[in-house]
Amino acid sequence: MTMEGNEDYQQGDQAAPDAVREYSPAKHVLRVFLRNRGATVGLIILLVLICMAVAAPLLAPYDPFEISENLMEPPSGDHLMGTDPLGRDLMSMIIFGSRISLQVGLIAVGIATVVGTVFGLVAGYMEGWVDNVIMRFMDILLAFPGILLALVIIAVLGSGLFNVMIALGIAAIPTYTRLVRGSTLSAKQNEYVMAAQAQGANLSRLLFKHILPNVMAPIIVNATLGVAGAILASAGLSFIGLGPSPPTAEWGAILAQSRQYIRRAWWLVTFPGMAITLTVLSINMVGDGLRDALDPQLKE
């Protein structure tokens, strides 16, 4: 793959200016990405899931909150994934749940990426005491393992979907700060950055126009995998009762409500988990593919 990548560059270097214009890094990345079977499969699954989330009202066979007399029915022709103790159609709940999970993942990672990147750029570019203050604070946040920090933040903010997003977002900030700081430290040694400095470019221009594009690749890869992680974490938080309050179609919350019926209704604990796994799996496959395409050195 790298060989072919080089050929692209050489063509660009030697051929006429037209050919130079034809070479586009984005196209190259896309080509390497699509050549990766796992990544392509992941992307297709993910696109289907996104369509499902968008078209949920059209696709769901029933109203997900409609209570019926068919209590706890096993999967059948009428209810493909069975019904819950209130007679609600599980499949409809799961289809609507995809909206929540994708939203939580995207917004939590959005918060973490933006805040974490700004801190990382500033810390890496300024160095000295600013860097020290920011990074020691990040060390403190990193001393909370796993979902512990998110757990405490939710305890403070109160449970609920929006607070879960904020908590997971804050908890993920240190990862991006560390990552971006490291890349910034090396990116600022580039001659064009020094040239821009010498020309008197202001700080935000230096950081966002000259340094940021150089550190984008690892951010994109981490953010993609981060969405998967955030979906997993939010399911876990909902499961222990810190997510959105019922009635809700959130996958982790459905699992929490279903747990007490584990002896009688296997479908109630099986399908929501499959939905989470499939979503996270597809995003992970896309993330792995992006990593291989964007940064061949990181390839596993």
């Binding site: 796992g38 998967a228 997993l232 399911a235 876990g236 499961f239 982790g252 699992l255 747990r259 584990i262 296997w266 604990v269 099986t270 929501p272 988990g273 989470i276 796994t277 996270v280 799996l281 992970n284 496959m285």
Partner: peptide, 18 residues
């Protein structure tokens, strides 16, 4: 392994119980 990193571990636990 890909499934292993993508499954919520608490759900895997529920499946083990089932």
């Amino acid at each position: 392994a890909m499934f292993g990193v993508s499954m919520p571990s608490f759900w895997f636990g529920l499946m083990l119980i089932v």
